[in-house]
């Protein structure tokens, strides 16, 4: 049984880490970008961002004043049991979100869409989102928090098989150029692309590709992995850098996730996880151990399974 207290205290720590500490994989990616950047203004911007990450850690203050919209991904091994059950788990995550909003502090971004009511704690109707995933084995629970910024850089389009890769590239470039101008997407970013599913799942896939995969990770399908490399290169050949200034670095990495879709369509979504890619992860065990990390490791073979029954040997053979 996983302790409810431990879930809440761990969740509060994760909120703090996500807001303050840039994940190492993104930092390494940005340092590599800064080393190649030769646009004078975009170079200045990347250096300022690198200094900003240091300042955030030194002062233990949020790296960006817009601390995004906190959300949770909960993944559990098949044998995990939670003290108090799932209703108690959700209450603990909502309490942690509210406590961290005043504790860190975070910006209380969450308001009612019509009445603009702000509870000043990032909790409200449907907020924070809590999404679930499962793995075949284990008694552990992974808590993942992501505080993604939210206004620009994301788009969806219904494409068709006849659009092909050329059509996918076109919409990808359209999204980068449209939201890259003036730096609205807060690039260079981790670009997530969702392909297939249906409209809602396509958005979910693309968002998860940007926020739940790390810089340097590659899709397990080698042909999709090759597309990820090609799309990263393509995005960085636009000639646009940070803040929409002339530069070489728009995409720190490009991650693509797919889902089976209607035979007539090819849904596509594009998402940008910004210069403050806020994510933090911890695995909690029933014996009270907590292991912190920054890689959500969400997209396992099980999450990408294609078969009816889960049969690891057969999946590996395919």
């Amino acid at each position: 049984m996983i302790s409810l207290d431990l879930i809440q205290t761990t969740a509060e720590t994760l909120m703090d880490k996500a807001a303050i500490e840039i994940p190492q994989d993104y930092l390494d990616g940005l340092r590599a970008a800064a080393a190649t950047e030769d646009g004078d203004l975009s170079s200045f911007v990347l250096q300022a961002m690198l200094e900003n990450y240091e300042a955030a850690k030194e002062d233990r203050r949020a790296m960006c004043g817009d601390t995004g919209v906190p959300r949770w991904f909960v993944k559990m091994g098949n044998d995990a049991r939670v003290e108090g059950g799932f209703v108690a788990l959700e209450a603990a995550l909502r309490r942690a979100t509210a406590n961290a909003t005043t504790g860190v502090p975070l910006r209380p971004n969450r308001v009612h869409p019509l009445w603009r009511t702000d509870h000043n704690n990032n909790v409200g109707i449907g907020a924070p989102e809590i999404e679930y995933g499962f793995e075949p084995e284990g008694e552990w629970m992974d808590l993942i928090t992501v505080h993604k910024g939210g206004l620009f850089g994301t788009d969806y389009r219904m494409l068709f098989p006849s659009d092909g890769i050329e059509g996918i590239k076109r919409f990808y470039l359209d999204s980068l150029v449209a939201f890259g101008k003036r730096g609205l997407a807060c690039q260079p970013a981790i670009i997530g692309i969702g392909l297939g599913g249906s409209k809602d799942t396509c958005m979910v896939l693309g968002k998860r590709a940007s926020v739940l995969r790390t810089v340097g990770s590659r899709n397990s399908d080698p042909k999709i992995a090759a597309m990820e490399d090609e799309f990263k290169e393509l995005g960085n050949s636009i000639g646009m850098g940070a803040m929409g200034f002339v530069g070489k670095n728009m995409v720190i990495d490009c991650n693509i996730e797919v889902g089976y879709c209607h035979t007539g369509g090819m849904q596509m979504s594009v998402h940008a996880f910004c210069l403050s890619s806020r994510r933090a992860v911890a695995r909690i065990f029933p014996d009270g151990r907590v292991e912190h990390r920054t890689d959500p490791n969400w997209f396992t073979d099980y999450q990408r399974r294609e078969t009816i029954e889960w049969d690891p040997a057969r999946e590996a053979a395919e």
Binding site: L41, R157, L159, F160, S162, D163, G164, E166, G167, K169, R170, F171, L173, V177, K181, R182, L234, S237, I238, G239, M240, M243, G244, F245, V246
Partner: peptide, 23 residues
Amino acid sequence: FERENAKISENLDRVYEGTKPAV
């Protein structure tokens, strides 16, 4: 920003080469 946009726009036709508008 418009000054920078204008410089970047000069390169866009080349980057878009080979792509096609959505059906």
